[in-house]
Every structure is written in structure tokens, then in C-alpha cells.
Computed example of a mutant assay.
Amino acid sequence: MRALFVGGLIDNSELDLDGKEPPRHYPPETGSGQSRYRLHAVGRGNGGVACAIYGAPDSDPDEVLRISDERGYPRRFDTELQRVD
């Protein structure tokens, strides 16, 4: 699955994630108390998760979804995003 990032230092970046389900935060474990990106939505397809949308710390969930739609992430992965609350 592809992890896609909205906002913060790694805005508009992406990387591959292993596993069947994306972690709730990225990076999953820092141990430093540093704010992490939070999972806002997933796009399912081909029997699993095709993409995971992460927003920067303190980002508005609606804004993260708006930006990801504007960037065409759902279309790119041929999926509809499902919000994660």
C-alpha cells in the first residue's frame, strides 16, 4: 500500500508500507514524544488497502480529505476514500 502525506514537513510525499492495515500514526513508534502524522482515510481495492492518507499533526481532518481529493489520490488508486475516525 502507498502512504500519502498532507501537510507538515513531508507534504505531498509518499512511500510504500508493508502489512495488511496501515498504522494509526506514522511513524508508528518514535519513542521521542514527537508529534506524528495521523491516519485520516484509507482507499480499499484489490482485496486490501491500496492507499493510506496521513495528515500532519494538528491538521483539520476535513482539510486533509479536501487536499487529497484535490491531488487526485482516490482517482489515482481507483478507489473511494473511507474516513478513519
Rank of each mutant, 00 (worst) to 15 (best):
S35N: 08
P57C: 06
D78T: 08
Q82D: 15
F77M: 00
G7W: 07
G72D: 04
S35G: 14
L15H: 07
L65Q: 08
P61A: 15
S68T: 11
E80W: 01
G45T: 00
D58Q: 12
K20G: 15
R71N: 03
P28R: 14
P57Y: 04
A52E: 05
L15M: 15
D85I: 04
N12F: 02
G47P: 12
S68M: 10
R24C: 06
S59Y: 07
P23W: 00
D69T: 11
S32T: 14
S35H: 09
S32G: 11
P57Q: 04
I67N: 00
G33F: 00
L9F: 11
D16K: 14
D18I: 06
P61L: 05
D16G: 13
D11R: 03
E29S: 13
R2S: 10
G55Y: 07
D60K: 09
D11C: 12
S68G: 10
L4N: 02
F5C: 11
E14C: 06
V64E: 02
G31P: 04
G47V: 06
E14Q: 15
D60C: 08
G19S: 06
E80I: 05
D60Y: 05
L9S: 14
G33Y: 05
A41K: 08
S32Q: 13
L81D: 05
A52T: 04
H25N: 10
R71E: 07
G7Q: 05
R76Q: 07
D58A: 14
R66G: 06
V64S: 00
V64T: 09
Y73R: 01
L39E: 01
G31R: 13
T79F: 08
D69S: 13
D58C: 08
C51W: 01
G8P: 07
D58G: 12
P22R: 01
R76N: 09
H40D: 02
D11Y: 09
H25L: 15
D85V: 05
L15K: 13
T79R: 04
E70P: 03
R44Y: 07
G19H: 04
Y54P: 00
D11P: 07
R38T: 11
G55V: 03
G43P: 08
A41L: 03
G8C: 09
L4K: 08
S59G: 01
F77W: 11
Y73Q: 01
D85C: 08
G55E: 03
G72M: 10
G43N: 02
V42M: 07
F77L: 03
A56R: 02
P61E: 11
F77Q: 00
R75S: 13
R2Q: 13
R24V: 15
K20Q: 13
T30M: 07
G8M: 09
G45R: 15
D60V: 04
G72N: 03
S59M: 13
D78V: 06
S68Q: 05
R36N: 03
D69H: 11
G7R: 07
